[in-house]
Simulated assay, not measured.
Amino acid sequence: MAQEFLKGTILSTVAGLSTVLGAIPLLLFHKHLGEKVIDSLMGMAAGIMLAASAFSLAGPSLEIGGVFRFTIGFLLGAVLVDLMDKYSPHEHFLKGHEGADVKKLSKIWLFVIAITIHNFPEGMAVGISGYTPEALNVAIAIGTQNIPEGAATMVALMNAGYSTPFSLLVTFLTGVVEVIGGVFGAGLILISKKLLSYMLAFAAGAMVFVVSDEVIPETHLRGNERLSTYFLILGFLIMSALDVVLG
């Protein structure tokens, strides 16, 4: 159990901090990264997350615990993220303000809250998967989608007028959120392995909700919906193939 906890923690750290990989090139080239590129990359990230949710989280959950436990965990994951998204004050650079109206918080902190709501379950998914043979698959999926997500975050912050060092710091912290989520998820299973089926399904439900409610709509706000959809299909195909190759 301790070995699996360590594996989940390490993989969630690597996957989470891959946000910086997407941010670093933008220190020089962010002005040349167009909206079509961002939407394409985010569309591909959505496809990768959907495939990982289906094959590396939902599938193992069904095999381990059956339909009943999977259904409970999956619905709980989706509903909890929905409630957090609905009632927590947060800001999207394209969609604007959501949740409670808290005037005392600046937009940057509202943006950080938004990232926390979405990235924490992703980190949990990697940490929890450390107890399954699909751990590497989930880590690759989350890490891969974090690269364009990091790029999009960096661009949004810099375009909003924040300095390059501060934008890079916030992008880095979005990855740290996933690390914390990974340690939390792996820790829960360390306490009781009976939770594994529920938590795999929980992570799958949370990720599917995030993709449908946030990632896909964000890629459809600037007239690039068809392009981003094809990249979503590409991302799904890539992750499906990786799932087979990695076993």
Score class of each variant (00 low, 15 high):
16 G>F: 02
16 G>E: 00
18 S>I: 05
19 T>I: 05
19 T>L: 13
21 L>E: 03
21 L>P: 04
22 G>S: 12
23 A>C: 06
23 A>F: 07
25 P>R: 10
26 L>S: 03
27 L>P: 03
29 F>K: 01
30 H>D: 07
31 K>G: 13
31 K>M: 08
33 L>T: 14
35 E>A: 09
37 V>N: 04
37 V>E: 10
38 I>G: 02
38 I>F: 04
39 D>C: 07
41 L>S: 09
42 M>F: 09
45 A>V: 01
47 G>S: 03
48 I>K: 03
50 L>D: 05
51 A>K: 04
51 A>F: 04
51 A>W: 04
52 A>L: 08
56 S>T: 10
59 G>K: 14
60 P>G: 10
63 E>M: 09
64 I>T: 13
65 G>R: 00
66 G>I: 00
68 F>I: 05
74 F>A: 04
75 L>D: 11
76 L>M: 15
79 V>I: 15
82 D>V: 05
82 D>K: 13
83 L>P: 05
83 L>C: 07
84 M>A: 15
88 S>M: 13
90 H>R: 15
92 H>N: 14
93 F>T: 06
95 K>C: 00
96 G>S: 09
96 G>N: 10
98 E>D: 08
100 A>H: 05
101 D>V: 13
101 D>R: 14
101 D>I: 10
101 D>M: 10
104 K>I: 12
105 L>V: 15
106 S>L: 06
106 S>W: 04
106 S>E: 11
110 L>F: 03
111 F>M: 07
111 F>N: 01
117 I>P: 10
